[in-house]
Design a protein around this nucleic acid. Structure first.
Length: 418
RNA sequence: GUGGGUAUAGCUCAGUCGGUAGAGCGCUGGAUUGUGGUUCCAGAUGUCGAGGGUUCAAAUCCCUCUACCCACCCCA
C-alpha cells in the first residue's frame, strides 16, 4: 500500500470544515485591515533562504528540502514565506507604490524535521507582512490583528509574549557581553547549554532545565542593553498595546529562530498543543530587504500562524465546527420520481439550499441515510406525490411530516437558515 | 540526528499459562412492499505490521527490520 510521505497527511472532510473556517476568518480580518493577498511560488532558488533566513539557522542548515533542477540550479521548497514576500517586493518594485505594502498569504511550507504532535514536514502558515514603516504603531497594529484572527477563530486561553531583540547596533554588543559571561559560567550549565554557548548563546536564556535557572537569572537581559532608539521603540509598542487593552507578557528571554529579526519579536503560546505549544511567531525585520539586495531601506514586520496548530486547538474547543450541515435530503421512489427530483434539486441548490439525492435504494434506506447525514428535512417524492402535485416534507428533528407545494419547500427551508 | 511507546476486523481496543481469532461501534440484510432515530434477529470482514527462529503447536517466547505516535533538539 502506498501511504502519504512521513510528516505529511491527508486532511479529510470533517476537519477541512474547520480549516475553511479558520481561513475565512483570517481572510475577513486581514481584508478589514486592508491587506492584500500575495501568492509566491512554493519553491525558490536556495540562495534566497540561505541569505534571507540565515545560514546558521537550523532551518537552513538541516531542515530544507533542497534539490538540483535539471539545469543544476539549486532549488528549495520554501521553509517559510517572509523571504519570498520580500523577494517579490523587491522584484516588482512595490516600494514605488503609494503607502505601505500590506500583504498576507496562506499556504504550505516544508521543513524536514522529525514529526511529532503539532509538527509536520508539510505544514500550513497564515501570515502577513507590512513593509515600509518602522513605526511602533505598525507593530502594535500587526499584533492586534493577529490576536483578532485567533479570537475570532474561536481560540481561547492563549498567551501573548513579546520582546525586543535590538538592532544591528545594539544586538552584537549584547551578544559579545553574553558570550563573555557564558565563558565563565558554562561549566555549571547543562550539556545542551554548553553547546548553545558556542552555537547560539541567546538560546541559553531560553533553557528550561531547572538546575540551570539560578545561573540564567544572573545572565544579562537584552532589554537592559538596547540602544536608545530601540529602547524608545519598544516602549512605544508597549504603550500602543496598553492603549488597546491587549494583555501580554514581556519576556526578555524570548528568542526567535530566524536571523532576520530586529527589535520587536512576539509569540503566542497555547496549552493542549503538546510540546510544540507555539501557535504563531513574528517580529520586525528592518534589515531583511537590504540583505536580499534592495537598494532602498525597506523595514518590515510580520507574523505567521501555524495553521495546523490553530486548527488543532480550535477543533478541540469547538467540536461543533466539524458537524455536517445538510438542508434537504431527497428520497425519490421510482424512475419518474428520480427524473422529477433531479430538476427540483437543481432549482433548490440555486436558491442556496444544500440538497442531496438518494440515487438508489428503498425509502427505508433513504430515511436511514438522511438521519445519518443529519439532514434538517427529508423530501419524499413518489407516485402519490406526483399525482397530487405536492411533496411530503418531513422535519427530521420533530418527525413531523406534511404535504407541501413547490413554493412551500423554499419557504420552509429558507426560514430555518436565518 | 537521539530516546521512549505502540502495531490484532473499517474504527476503538481485549486476548490469561503457548493450544481452532474476540468485543463494542460501524457496515449489510431482515422484523416493517412508502418512513429515520430506540429495540430485536441474522450476516460479512483478519497476511494478528514484515521476515526469520524456538516448539508437536506462536497473536502470545526470542532475534532482525519497518511503520506510526510521543518526547529531545528546534520551531509554526
Amino acid at each position: 500500500m502506498i501511504r502519504a510521505i512521513k510528516g505529511t497527511r491527508d486532511i479529510l472532510p470533517p476537519s477541512t470544515r474547520v480549516w475553511n473556517h479558520v481561513e475565512s476568518v483570517a481572510r475577513r480580518v486581514m481584508e478589514s485591515y486592508h491587506y492584500g493577498e500575495i501568492r509566491t511560488p512554493i519553491f525558490e532558488e536556495t540562495a534566497l533562504f540561505a541569505r534571507g533566513v540565515g545560514e546558521e539557522t537550523d532551518i537552513v542548515s538541516k531542515e530544507m528540502y533542497t534539490f538540483a533542477d535539471r539545469d543544476e540550479t539549486s532549488i528549495t521548497l520554501r521553509p517559510e514565506n517572509t523571504a519570498s514576500v520580500i523577494r517579490a517586493y523587491i522584484e516588482h518594485r512595490l516600494d514605488q507604490l503609494p503607502g505601505l505594502q500590506k500583504l498576507y498569504y496562506i499556504g504550505p511550507m516544508f521543513r524536514r524535521e522529525r514529526p511529532q504532535k503539532g509538527r509536520y514536514r508539510q505544514f500550513s502558515q497564515i501570515g502577513a507582512e507590512v513593509i515600509g514603516s518602522e513605526s511602533p504603531a505598525v507593530d502594535a497594529e500587526v499584533i492586534e490583528m493577529v490576536i483578532e484572527i485567533l479570537s475570532q477563530s474561536g481560540l481561547e486561553g492563549f498567551h501573548l509574549v513579546i520582546n525586543s531583540v535590538g538592532c544591528k547596533e545594539c544586538r552584537p554588543k549584547f551578544l559579545a557581553t553574553l558570550r563573555e559571561r557564558l565563558q565563565d559560567l558554562k561549566g555549571q550549565l547543562c550539556q545542551d547549554c554548553q553547546r548553545r554557548s558556542e552555537t547560539n548563546p541567546l538560546r541559553v536564556l531560553d533553557c528550561k532545565v531547572p538546575s540551570d535557572q539560578p545561573i540564567i537569572e544572573t545572565l544579562p537581559s537584552i532589554l537592559d542593553h538596547l540602544c536608545e532608539a530601540c529602547s524608545r521603540h519598544f516602549a512605544a509598542v508597549r504603550t500602543f498595546l496598553d492603549d488597546r487593552g491587549i494583555t501580554y507578557e514581556v519576556r526578555p528571554r524570548l528568542v526567535r529562530g530566524l536571523d532576520y529579526y530586529t527589535r520587536t519579536t512576539f509569540e503566542v503560546v497555547h496549552g493542549a498543543l503538546g510540546a510544540q505549544n507555539s501557535v504563531l511567531g513574528g517580529g520586525r525585520y528592518d534589515g531583511l530587504a537590504e540583505a536580499l539586495g534592495s537598494k532602498v531601506h525597506s523595514p518590515g514586520i510580520g507574523f505567521s500562524i501555524g495553521e495546523d496548530r490553530l486548527v488543532m486547538s480550535v477543533e478541540e474547543a469547538h467540536p461543533k465546527l466539524r458537524s455536517e450541515t445538510l438542508d434537504l435530503f431527497v428520497a425519490p421512489m421510482g424512475d419518474a420520481a428520480l427524473r422529477h427530483v433531479t430538476v427540483l434539486a437543481r432549482e433548490l441548490r440555486r436558491e442556496g439550499i444544500s440538497v442531496e439525492i438518494a440515487f438508489e435504494g428503498k425509502l427505508k434506506r433513504a430515511m436511514e441515510t438522511a438521519n445519518k447525514l443529519n439532514a434538517r428535512y427529508t423530501l419524499i417524492v413518489g407516485d402519490n406525490e406526483i399525482a397530487a402535485g405536492t411533496y411530503a416534507l418531513k422535519e427530521m428533528a420533530s418527525g413531523e411530516q406534511h404535504p407541501v407545494t413547490r413554493e412551500q419547500i423554499s419557504e420552509r427551508l429558507y426560514a430555518g437558515k436565518h
